[in-house]
Design a binder for these strands. Structure first.
Lengths: 262, 262
DNA sequence: CTCAATTTGTTCGTATGTATG
DNA sequence: ACATACATACGAACAAATTGA
């Protein structure tokens, strides 16, 4: 059966060439993500008529029904409005979520943390040290592990997993248990912070984080690791912070030596 | 049929309570993402025996087959090795990709860009200005649009979409067409850059970006926008850069006023 | 007003993928 | 491994609404 095997070859090649082996996420969701981005960025402005189904089919190289599924998703989000015979229109813009400007110097970071509404969801004393990079100083003997959730307008936007040197925690259990740790540490006159290493990467939500932030497992998050080193080269504060991917931006004027713009 | 409607109610509630309505990404992929993260972060170290299927079923609250699908994915990536009767073991770690440290001040940015291997994939002169934020100065009359791809070890890791003021481009077409624009601009003695606004966010790959970076549509990327403002408050350089999510980190010592660590 | 072109909406059949128990 | 249910995706045909000539 030369013909049929040739046909199945075509079919397989088509499959391989498709976008599908690169991500395995349902196609209509991928398409919807891109369209959502176009609306959010203003590339498709509110009130605009977007491309026709036929054009979108061609652009994304998918079937009509798949485009319609994507549009249906965005309709439910209130972003699109499809009208038979007329076209599909942009009916709204996702609420602007980039209200949080991440800190880029210590003072800004402090100011940012001070206003945080936090909820401690877990505290455990005398735990073993977290893994540390070679540049991140030496571990203290014991730590207290604190997990908290930050809220903005009642919505969770970040989860903090903090290892705080046990001796520091013991100095003011009450305060550390109920409010942000950073200001408390800074106020301690005898604690000298020599370094505050911050590392920002893109990660994925593990089950706990996903639950606390109310997002799906494996969805991307902005992961910020903050390590404070004291004058004995001890990592007294090791925080892994997971931010919702949409809630923040990191704005800097590179010519202004790290000063953060408002 | 009171019973059957009750049963379907149960079914629906179970569905709603599941992780599924939060992300719609196939469950086994979500599970695989989390397990991949654990390996990458060292939480599951190479050679370790990971939890049994039963434990994983319980932890993720999914069926056994779903766990096995996730494990199968990671087996194909060479990260896991399942042996009947013995258990499942970590057999490798995803290649360490965080080789790129994003710049946080102008000089570092320049140094970083100078070594870039770029490939221009598109050039178009005399295009209309891009959308500008109110803080991003005034647009020039015309721009040249340049799209390029950056490579590291033959692998693409970022796509740059650059709007360069037309008059600047015209001053050295050849050089701008084949190498990074930033150094060329800095060398122009009569061009004074007053601001270099950088904004980092998490975005999603549109079709062009996905193709150039060889990733799936809608996968997360790190989006860096860089706008240079000259002494006439004109945005002479507007770049939207999409980085692969895994290739970079942004490391800063917050106490060292924006200086970037090596 | 009618006609034709355009555009979205609906449906069928088929194949494959996902998830449970 | 199996049986079941439902989701995803394609292609194609047809229906219904809108627009403008």
């Amino acid at each position: 059966m030369a013909l049929s095997s040739y046909l199945s070859y075509i079919k397989i090649m088509k499959k391989l060439a498709s976008l599908y082996d690169r991500s395995r996420v349902p196609l209509y969701i991928q398409v919807a993500s891109v369209m959502r981005q176009r609306i959010e960025s203003g590339h498709w402005a509110e009130g605009d008529k977007i491309s026709t189904l036929e054009e979108l089919e061609a652009e994304f190289a998918v079937a009509r029904v798949t485009i319609r599924q994507a549009i249906e998703l965005l309709r439910n989000e209130g972003l699109l409005d499809a009208q038979q015979g007329r076209g599909t229109f942009v009916s709204g813009r996702p609420r602007h979520n980039r209200w949080l400007n991440l800190a880029n110097d210590f003072d800004t970071m402090l100011a940012l943390v001070k206003d945080n509404v936090i909820e401690r969801v877990h505290i455990e004393e005398n735990v073993a040290p977290p893994d540390l990079d070679e540049r991140e100083g030496k571990p203290a003997e014991k730590y207290t592990f604190l997990r908290s959730v930050q809220y903005n307008n009642g919505e969770p936007f970040s989860v903090v997993n903090l290892y705080l040197a046990q001796n520091l925690f013991a100095r003011d259990r009450k305060r550390f248990s109920h409010s942000a740790a950073l200001p408390s540490i800074v106020e301690m006159q005898d604690v000298r912070i020599l370094h505050a290493y911050q590392t920002l990467t893109i990660g994925v939500a593990d089950p706990e984080t996903a639950n606390l932030l109310k997002i799906g497992l494996g969805e991307p998050t902005a992961d910020c690791r903050l390590v404070l080193i004291d004058d004995a080269n001890t990592a007294i504060y090791v925080a892994n912070i997971h931010y919702l991917k949409d809630c923040f931006a990191l704005r800097v004027d590179l010519l202004n030596k790290g000063k953060v713009e408002a």
